[in-house]
Design a protein around this nucleic acid. Structure first.
Lengths: 312, 312
DNA sequence: GTATCACTCAAGAATTTCTTGACTGAGGCT
DNA sequence: AGCCTCAGTCAAGAAATTCTTGAGTGATAC
């Protein structure tokens, strides 16, 4: 009748039995004989002072106390198991889990995965795309790449340079709208995923940088930046794209960035990891590769004039 | 280097050591000698294949692997401990935890607690007021009393009769506004906690039941029903109150319900508990007392005309 | 009416876990 | 500098636990 935790082996046996609703299968799971399992359950029941299972002759059934114990026990052991795997993952120098937004994943990371795999064949890289800010310590993620102003408390944070945006479109559309003035009449694509930026970094801002008035009319809106760029690739309109999102499509000729003017926000991508994990070999390798890869294409924008939005 | 869970005793030793950041204190917590604890940690490190603590001479410090393991381990053991307490609570026939909304708790349950304690001195009743729907199985609550239309899936549900509302006020105010027509000019108190009812069960509905037009003007709004009734008690206005909320104040003369007309909603209070706990002695006792207590005062409203809102 | 299935029991074996008591090495105190 | 204390470690043996074996039980299925 103790108030503290019962013997954990017994509790574990109960968890398995409750999950399988069978002592025999639970015993199999734990690699012990049914007799041992039966004994453990019995000892747990003795600790509690009441039966946890009702023994029907061909089956077992949880008593009320058993029903109260089972879900929490399962949660608890699952938590322990996850924690143990986390610890093991730290030791694993061959795998690396990276989380990034869907757009960066689709437009920048995924196309370069092959490159990285070739440069580091020993590392097994996994991508986890999602906007939810994951808890690096609890969710088993080694690296997060996030866009924004970012406070990044408690994390090692390597900021990339400030991000800027410039109009991109198919060569066809570029021919049809050769000047910024003409562009105002083009079908415009809006990327709502960066509407949180302040000061804003949108179409009116870009035209303002050109010294042109512009009031947004109708247009196509996308909640993901990669969808906006994809739409531009199909030629339905002109998108205002961030560097990493457009680089691939520009290099491969699907899109052009004919106006050599970009507006720059203070927001940027940051490479984040746990401070104690900064020097793990696979994280260090990925970090160095990541920033080198950015530098590789930096020259492409040498002839762009970049105007900070805060000056507009 | 096994992928499955390590010996749980060792994991438990690690958890204690990580929480205290001291082997000696962890050993004390677990009632073992420091040597035993040291041995357990060492065996866990052997399982993992790497050290979990860095031994500095006067202190210990978590390694990276240790930092990865510690928070999850703590969560896990906490979950197990909570689960075990749940199981023990089921066996405890002396205590009973009831959750109800703040209004019912304040206006109906709390004033009757003494009665219940006298009728069942062996039961230790605890109230937990809050709107959040608690998970009876996980939150250690035995009984929930909730108001609404209620689907109550997976729970044993004992509905009380449909609820109705009638105007209540101090005797002073009742003298000043003797007729329903006059009441329209009285300061009215609005209880926003029942604004979710559909069809609505508010002042315009009540006046409609009287055959009177009424458009709500200004008035005092409360988000809790008990605050609305309390306000009526101070004489600042007239409230439209549900039976359980007004009964005490009406019986004790602070409020009167001079108009013998009530509007009835389909919503009602339900007494909820886990199906497997229905017959636990303290739950059964409380349930029977609860419904008997409602019946006791039913005669008070014998002369009321009750009009379902769905007929209005 | 027999076979089978799922769990139980008891005794002894195997394994884990604990204690004792001596040991180590660093920091603090005189 | 020298000594003490503190926190953790080690090794051997003791204690406790957990497991297996092999027989047993009773209800259901065929």
């Amino acid at each position: 009748m103790s108030d503290r935790l019962p013997p954990l082996t017994a509790l574990r046996a109960f968890d398995a039995a409750a999950r399988h609703m069978s002592f025999a299968r639970a015993a199999e799971e734990l690699n012990v004989t049914p007799a041992a399992l039966s004994f453990q359950i019995k000892s747990l029941e003795e600790h509690l002072g009441a039966p946890l299972f009702r023994r029907l002759n061909r089956a077992v059934e949880l008593t009320e106390a058993g029903q109260a114990l089972a879900p929490g026990a399962e949660d608890g052991f699952r938590a322990l198991s996850v924690a143990w795997q986390q610890a093991r993952r730290v030791l694993d120098t061959t795998s690396l889990t990276v989380t990034a937004g869907p757009a960066l994943t689709a437009k920048w990371l995924a196309p370069r995965l092959y490159e990285f795999a070739r440069a580091h064949p020993e590392i097994d890289l996994r991508l986890s795309a999602g906007l939810r800010m994951m808890d690096l310590r609890r969710d088993g993620v080694d690296v997060a790449i996030r866009f924004g102003y970012g406070s990044d408390q408690g994390l090692a944070s390597y900021p990339a340079r400030a991000e800027w945006l410039t109009p991109v479109m198919t060569p066809d559309l570029a021919a049809r709208y050769p000047t910024p003035e003409a562009l105002r009449r083009a079908p415009l694509i809006y990327d709502d995923s960066i509407s949180f930026l302040s000061p804003a970094c949108d179409w009116p801002t870009w035209f303002r940088a050109q010294g042109l008035e512009f009031t947004p009319g109708s247009g196509i809106h996308f909640s993901n930046a990669d969808h906006a760029i994809d739409a531009a690739c199909t030629g339905v309109g002109v998108a205002l794209g961030r560097r990493p999102m457009i680089i691939k499509d520009v290099m491969e000729g699907r899109l052009v960035a004919p106006f050599k003017l970009a507006i720059e926000t203070e927001a940027r991508f940051r490479f984040l990891c746990l401070p104690e994990a900064e020097e793990r070999p696979q994280i260090k390798a990925f970090r160095e590769w990541f920033f080198a890869e950015i530098e590789k294409t930096a020259h492409m924008w040498d002839d762009f004039e970049i105007i900070p939005v805060k000056d507009l």
